[in-house]
Amino acid sequence: MTIQEMLGIDFPIIQAPMAGVQEHELAVAVSNAGGLGSLPCAMLSPEGLRNELTALTSQTSKPYNVNFFCHVPPEPDAEAERHWRRALAPYFDEFGIDPDTISSQAGRSPFSAEMAEVLAEFRPPVVSFHFGLPAPELMDRIRGWGGKILSTATTVDEALWLEARGVDAIIAQGLEAGGHRGFFLSRDISTQMGTFALLPQVVEAVKVPVIAAGGIADAKGVQAAMTLGATGVQIGTAYLLCPEAQTKPVHRSALKSEASRVTALTNLFSGGAARGIVNRIMRELGPMSSDAPAFPLASAAIAPLRAKAEAKGSGDFSPLWAGQNTSGCREVSAAILTRELAGVGK
């Protein structure tokens, strides 16, 4: 069965869910163009999720995907937080920020029974996960309305783990991919490999369809992935300049500049390893810092720095998420881009 047949879409193109840079508009545009639009939900409240799904389903009758995180929230660690704020202290001084006024809210929550209740009202055809899978009873709820379940693997072991738990398809996320690594069995970066090394190994190891993700930016990249056994591709970075994305001006500017050629994995913005364009704070603290608290706790202390800098037109403290291949980023509609990625022109 092709991914098109499984998911009810025209093209084997899945728009990657990108929390913080998109809402329902991008998902609607991709789904209406024949791909699978995705809505990132990890940063939404139940009410926000309901509002976004109401808007999405009023604008498309095509299949769509909703995406959630499955991380285990860490226990707050006062000592770790003190270390982190001490590392950021010079920047707080620079911007006149009182650390005592900073919230400790992380802003990212794993999939829960409460969110599943909201989903049951809409019965989304596809639900995807990052950082593993939720509890079996939550997966059973999705299956109960006929929903297909996808999840991300960054190693062969993770792919086998997901297959054993009954996912319908696996997203093989190569090291080139922008945003957060979906790893969950190990946080060892040395286990991570590039898309075109990982993909054929996962295809060989599992029987379920495999979707390639990471470094794919045009129709030729899509075809290369399909040649290596992928049944579909998931693409995020190329959509960041589309008008339907909520990518902020400082992020758009970075994507259009030569700076976009240099990306790195960093834990500074959330505590989890994620790929973005190298900026001031990544250069000065180093992209991976032992001072950063566990995911997603690092985000609270850095948020006011980001806000102050962005107000001045600077992305020095912003998570400028991007994959290693930004060549596909263009200011065209998501519909045009989706069809071009599928090799059918405009």
Score class of each variant (00 low, 15 high):
314 S>T: 12
318 S>Y: 06
302 I>S: 07
342 A>H: 00
319 P>A: 11
308 K>H: 13
337 L>P: 03
321 W>Q: 01
339 R>K: 15
325 N>T: 11
312 K>S: 12
338 T>C: 06
331 E>W: 10
333 S>Q: 05
341 L>R: 01
320 L>G: 03
327 S>R: 15
328 G>I: 10
334 A>F: 02
328 G>S: 14
301 A>T: 03
311 A>C: 11
329 C>A: 12
339 R>V: 14
310 E>W: 07
331 E>Q: 15
308 K>L: 09
341 L>N: 00
301 A>E: 01
310 E>I: 14
340 E>W: 02
305 L>M: 05
335 A>Q: 11
336 I>N: 02
340 E>I: 08
329 C>Q: 03
338 T>L: 09
306 R>I: 11
318 S>D: 08
329 C>Y: 00
304 P>S: 08
329 C>N: 05
337 L>Y: 07
331 E>F: 10
327 S>I: 15
312 K>M: 15
327 S>Y: 13
321 W>T: 06
323 G>T: 10
341 L>D: 00
333 S>V: 08
328 G>A: 13
333 S>Y: 12
316 D>W: 09
314 S>W: 05
305 L>H: 05
341 L>Y: 01
322 A>R: 01
323 G>D: 01
312 K>G: 15
326 T>C: 13
333 S>G: 15
332 V>D: 06
341 L>H: 01
332 V>E: 11
335 A>N: 10
324 Q>V: 10
338 T>R: 00
309 A>H: 07
321 W>R: 10
312 K>R: 15
306 R>H: 09
325 N>C: 09
326 T>I: 14
318 S>W: 02
307 A>P: 14
308 K>R: 15
341 L>F: 00
337 L>D: 02
317 F>L: 08
323 G>K: 02
